[in-house]
Write a protein that binds this DNA or RNA. Structure first.
Lengths: 337, 337
DNA sequence: TCAGCTTGTTGAAGCGCTCTAATCATTGTG
DNA sequence: CACAATGATTAGAGCGCTTCAACAAGCTGA
């Protein structure tokens, strides 16, 4: 920086001002500084800059599971909004492990990002609220009733209800839910399923699993082995639905003829024609945009009150759902539009 | 830090030493410092630390396309090796766009990571070599003949040859290649395909595309519309193979009865039983480990000469390849094991 | 003409840490 | 018992930037 100042024939302070586009720099010195900086290939040291100014104009994005195709779309929305707001992004993955996630959060704090977005976070709320004392945090895809962190979610309760309603309209009554365990939004989806089953007087059938393909496959085997009648399965997310599909397949069931299947998230894999999974779209990119907006409000406009956005999802009907073949089920249909 | 020093009854310098585990600190003061730091919830400011020491013990990982399931596995290997070596990771995505990629590289440099891993990078070699003057770089999944950056690759040329050989052994001779364009390793795969086709005296049939599902779908339509006989298709990567599968499907072709299909990368989607794509495994996690090793060698052992690792891939045969049904093709079979 | 503005510029302090060299306390040696 | 050697500790400079108060110079209007 000294070199640039010397070359441009001005003081170091002016170089700093000129390079950040301050209004109180004459055009001539600005040009001189610019030229000198270019010639010297000078890039300001972000570390030093932050140390002096407490700002980095960077947001951190923590993705819980890189293998889950759900997250990239959220990241797309985040990326676009961050660009528009003049912020850069830094990402990290939790690799599905709470310790890793906590450590990743610490890394971001150590690097003094101006704000942090947690997607599909699984660490305890206490860890998040503790971190929120160091940096503004918005949590995406995990409902939290917090007064210090913002949350952006789709309405999982509603989404699950839409799924069950769709299946019931088709004539299903033996609908099994493959639960997502600690997965983001899983609890609300379960609740939506239960509420809707209850409203129609159908017995819920719940099998525990997680948001991975492997656990979905396992849970499906378990469900089939239980001996209970099943005409449709509603998996906690697409990934686990894919596992269910595998198990159904190898057990000789044809989807949707024998059993209907629904996922959640509308990931790219669900859209593959070969899969054609009926699922729920969360409008992921929109979630990402809202997250950045929330962060910018906090950082630039000093908002301190937490906001909680919930946006309505939509059902995407594809080829894995159909009316049940079993006339007994159809006969007992209790609901019709 | 002053607060910690005061509370522990020692100097600031000693706090610094104690917290970094220096050997020349007495056990008693170390304990006192630790306790004081814990009580105060003190976390050293990485920015200041770097400013003073020029080190961050962080590596950056740039992922070209978050939507491509190829990358997460590489990241897994990188993550594990980085943990073992005592480094933390920071990630970023290029969102398939050269400008974004260049900007992401700059962000990492601004944040003064100690080393940088580029996976599936697409920017020009000049940009990479320029960046390599600021930070050690290893490029994964992109062959580069550089004297300044390390590269870690699978042998795409060999992998492609294995694919073609497999198809020829099954009796195919009309093998169409859906090229991956600028995608990582695409050129080598094309070359391997051409070499093997040439060796057997079969006419190559190449359709340009990219490493995305959409472009694969388009290319397949184009290939079918060309009127040329096709008994097997070899896509540049799994993602584009998925697109091909879609197009084949909707055009009424049954895979593998009518047309065999092979991908490349052995991504998780290819392994789905519903897809069961024959493909090539690159041993991605191993690639990631080697990348970290290379970085550590540079950072800690001062290596300055570039290394170029190439590891052999393996063919994964699943359900999308079979002998061609057309007896004419089979009759002309020129190769047999 | 000159007090009072602007507008542009600068010196110096300070951000929170590391690191070198110097200091202090303790032990071992001839 | 003086003195070297060893181990533990500390003061202070400095990393590369921002920022604030101060200042110089040119301009305004009474």
């Amino acid at each position: 920086m000294d070199d640039v100042a010397r070359r441009a024939g001005v003081s170091r302070a002016l170089v700093s001002l000129a390079l950040r586009g301050s209004a109180k720099v004459s055009d001539s010195s600005r040009a001189a500084v610019r030229r000198a900086a270019d010639e010297l290939g000078y890039r300001p040291n972000l570390m030093a800059r932050h140390l002096a100014s407490k700002q980095t104009r960077t947001f951190g994005l923590l993705i819980n599971d890189l293998h889950n195709p759900y997250f990239p779309s959220v990241a797309d929305g985040i990326k676009r909004a961050a660009d528009a707001g003049g912020y850069r992004m830094l990402m990290n993955s939790a690799f599905l492990n709470d310790d890793d996630e906590a450590r990743a959060i610490e890394t971001f704090i150590d690097y003094r990002v101006d704000g942090l977005i947690l997607t599909g976070s699984q660490v305890s709320a206490a860890v998040i609220e503790q971190a929120a004392r160091s940096v503004p945090i918005v949590v995406v895809s995990r409902p939290m009733d917090s007064t210090v962190v913002d949350t952006i979610n789709n309405d999982d309760f509603l989404g699950a209800q839409m799924v069950v309603e769709h299946l019931i309209e088709l004539g299903h009554r033996h609908i099994c839910h493959i639960d997502g365990g600690r997965g983001a939004g899983s609890a609300q989806r379960l609740a939506g399923y239960q509420a809707m089953m209850h409203r129609h007087g159908f017995a819920p059938h719940i099998v525990p699993a997680a948001f991975t393909e492997a656990s979905g496959a396992l849970a499906a085997q378990e469900a089939l082995a239980s001996g209970r009648t099943i005409s449709a399965m509603f998996a906690g997310n697409d990934l686990s639905a894919l596992g269910v599909l595998d198990s159904l397949d190898s057990a000789g069931y044809v989807v949707p003829d024998d059993i209907s299947l629904v996922g959640y998230d509308n990931t790219s894999v669900a859209a593959l024609r070969h899969i054609g999974l009926t699922t729920v779209d969360q409008h992921r990119e929109r979630l990402g945009e809202l997250a950045i907006d929330a962060l910018i409000e906090r950082v630039e406009h000093g908002r301190t009150q937490a906001v909680h956005h919930v946006i309505a999802p939509s059902l995407v009907v594809r080829g894995t759902t159909a009316a049940p073949r079993d006339p007994e089920s159809r006969g007992q249909r209790k609901f019709s539009k």
